[in-house]
């Protein structure tokens, strides 16, 4: 009876098993790294927009309040993406010939919405509500970063669950008075935790409840 396996088969088996093990480890590593990488999280990515709207110009340069355009942020889950009408409030008079604004004028004339690319996209199973964060004293910059310095809007944080939980676990050092929520340059007092703990009391934030699953997942 002839031999089924050649003499080198043993070596081949070892090599293949080794390669499989390496591939396994590398695969797991890639998955973990991939989940954290900004290819997945979109952190720091500024999607291409039909109009290169600059928060740096409008907020940093002109000093327009967030709520001028995001008018629903205090009362609704969505901050409110401004309709073309909001752009045209000023741009019916200013930069009326600018090529960059042609899509805005077209949208206004044809009554069709501008197709902005979404910058922040939470998974559909996370139910984020802007209004409760704003009224609890969470500043816009805590999640959105200093948009007043962004020529193109990018996602400032990775917005992974860890990012949310860090704050829900211990909100005090990230809170500010309601009057300062929309302030891009607010300077916290030296002892921010002490202030935050007073604000937790004042705004009735139930810290025991904040890390329950149902707070964010329905």
């Amino acid at each position: 009876m002839s031999r089924i396996f050649r003499k080198s088969a043993d070596t081949w088996l070892r090599v293949i098993m080794l390669l499989a093990a390496v591939a396994l480890v590398a695969g797991v590593g890639l998955l973990v790294a991939g989940a954290a990488s900004n290819v997945t999280t979109r952190e720091n990515i500024a999607p291409v927009q039909p109009v290169p709207f600059s928060h740096r110009h409008h907020v940093g340069g002109l000093g327009i309040d967030c709520r001028y355009c995001h008018a629903a942020v205090e009362v609704s889950a969505s901050a409110g993406l401004p309709p073309t009408e909001t752009c045209m409030t000023c741009h019916s008079q200013l930069w009326t010939d600018a090529d960059l604004l042609a899509p805005v004028r077209q949208s206004w004339a044809e009554r069709t919405p501008i197709h902005w690319a979404r910058v922040h996209n939470l998974p559909d199973f996370a139910y984020f509500d802007h209004s409760i964060h704003v009224s609890s004293g969470v500043g816009c910059v805590e999640c959105h970063g200093n948009v007043d310095e962004m020529p193109l809007t990018r996602q400032a944080e990775n917005l992974r669950m860890r990012f949310c939980i860090d704050c829900h676990d211990d909100p005090a050092p990230r809170l500010r008075p309601r009057e300062a929520v929309f302030d891009m340059d607010w300077t916290p007092p030296p002892d921010r935790r002490a202030l935050g703990e007073r604000l937790v009391e004042r705004y009735g934030i139930d810290t025991d409840d904040l890390t329950h699953c149902y707070i964010c997942h329905r």
């Binding site: 396994l24 797991v28 998955l31 969505s78 998974p123 559909d124």
Partner: peptide, 21 residues
């Protein structure tokens, strides 16, 4: 590993969110 490679349909559920197409 195979399951992890599946499309995460929970992320994009068959429902409309505000401002979506």
């Amino acid at each position: 590993l195979l399951v992890a490679a599946c499309e995460q349909e929970m992320n994009e559920q068959p429902k409309y969110e505000v401002y979506e197409t």
